[in-house]
Amino acid sequence: MIDKRILFLLQLSVAVIVLIVWHVASTTTLFGDPKNIRFFFGEPIAVGQRIIDWFADGSIWYHLGITLTEAALAFIIGSVGGVIIGFWFARKPLLAAVFDPYVKAANALPRVVLAPIFALWLGLGIWSKVALGVTLVFFIVFFNVYQGVKEVSPTILSNARMLGMNGRQLLRHVYLPSAMSWMFSSLHTSVGFAVVGAVVGEYLGSAAGLGYLIHEAESVFDVTGVFAGMVVLTFFVLLVDWVVSLVENRLLVWRPKPAN
């Protein structure tokens, strides 16, 4: 095992080197004409300054709030829908068999192409972005819940029945926890997709949000703005992911830790 501090220093040095190369390339003639490089890549200090300005004048919070709202709504609606339909299909094999080809077809469709339709139906406000996120989140949760209900250990099921559980109690004490554990194991993916849905939707047409910010900067060749938006978005997703990990650790205490 590598010492944790050494590992951290090594990880940090990767970022430092990248930043230095970026800085040197965009301010000196070492890698070619710095004007050209600045046009395509911006320069790190300007990007940092832009981010600081955004937070200093508070304008970024509004956009972050919009994106977070859209992602959260997409995640909640998509998850609830996925859990309900997943459960329903798993318990009614005929229903699942009838709809199977349609579910597969809908899942095969690249969801981004739906964005213009949602914009047309739901306008340029947050709901067209929520809808796009829902179509992404729904299928992940749906498949996991469906699997979770199907894969309950037959022994645990028999045991629960022998302990006297009726249908409703089986649902509450056996099927639901099993399905939830599968759902939570895909939590990172589904939360990630909720953010993707929100940002891509904003990018394709909106008046607020991180995606809008990046799109606006891009349309006036403001590379610094694009990079600053990307950096903020990255840290935003990392933060959301960290919160998801906390929730996951809290909810899945009963699961054995995967062996390292």
Partner: peptide, 24 residues
């Protein structure tokens, strides 16, 4: 019925597994 394979509900603590038969 005591089964050969593991039949405890892994998402419940031991005491909850024991209590569940009475609770339901």
């Amino acid at each position: 019925y005591l089964f050969q394979q593991d039949s405890l509900m892994p998402w419940k603590t031991s005491i909850d597994n024991v209590a569940i038969g009475l609770e339901i």
